[in-house]
Design a protein around this nucleic acid. Structure first.
Lengths: 140, 140
DNA sequence: TTTAAAGTTGAGTGAATTAGTATGTATTAC
DNA sequence: GTAATACATACTAATTCACTCAACTTTAAA
């Protein structure tokens, strides 16, 4: 039950962006430096964040990234899903999958499946309810 | 955010054991057949389940496995933890780890960490609350 | 108009993990 | 003694992870 470093770094980077929301465009070099993450790896991470519409980019000198909307409108769930795809503890309860694709072969009376569905929904509800602004507010 | 097939198969096998709780010793060959899981792989999965005290084993002909206690006293969280270790979305909120080991270097004001802690606790609370008996009761 | 700073893209890579197989040993019922 | 079972260890092919590397495009500023 681990998220990858993409998700982990992505959340940290987005929190950093939220903390510095008023600074305008923030170059990756700055995030890489302050969060101690490889800049080239961050580039890979920011690409799907941009494609998901969570951040805007500006190319060229003095360019960088900005949050696409205010921190209270961006949720951890958005970030994780952008970076790791649909949140699902097993393949057969992922959005793209239908019951029939289940490894277990039980089309509708798979008791285990109901656990995975509950777990999936629980995780999504939690992560969809934590905004970047919520996280900023936690700061003592 | 996936669990491994060990956890997935482990839960299915344990549900099977619960469904057939009154049958006495159940050999792996039967579970492997009915749940369509490799018997050799199941052997690897049952070893930590036994070491965690969730099942008892009897060797030799007519041997097999039985639940170590009744289905209402065995929880999905027990099974997952036995097979995958502590449930934690990132390493730095795993039981074994201390704050200082965190990749981010922020000893106590890591905002991201608080998300992972909430997520960890949420998942554990859910899985610690679903017993095998609960699952049997779901059966239409 | 040049230059440097920045984003964008795709390929490559070594290490680790996953999802199993394969093989052999020990124990027990009959 | 034999067959059925648990137990244990080693092996492996494929995949994923966590990056690095290299090339290109765009833009601001000198």
């Amino acid at each position: 039950m681990r998220i990858s470093t993409r998700g982990e770094y992505g959340v940290r980077a987005m929190v950093y962006m939220a903390l510095n929301y008023l600074d305008g465009d923030i170059p990756l070099s700055r995030i890489a430096l302050e969060e101690n993450i490889s800049q080239q790896y961050l580039e890979q991470i920011f690409s799907p964040l941009r494609q998901s519409g969570l951040i805007n980019s500006k190319r060229g000198a003095k360019g960088g990234y900005t949050l696409a909307r205010s921190p209270e409108k961006i949720f951890v769930g958005d970030i994780i899903r952008a970076l790791e795809g649909p949140i699902a503890p097993v393949e057969c309860v992922s959005d793209q999958k239908k019951n029939e694709d289940c490894r277990c072969g039980k089309s509708d009376n798979c008791l285990a499946r109901q656990v995975w569905e509950k777990l999936r929904d629980h995780i999504n509800e939690l992560l969809n309810d934590i905004s970047l602004q919520d996280m900023l507010d936690w700061k003592h």
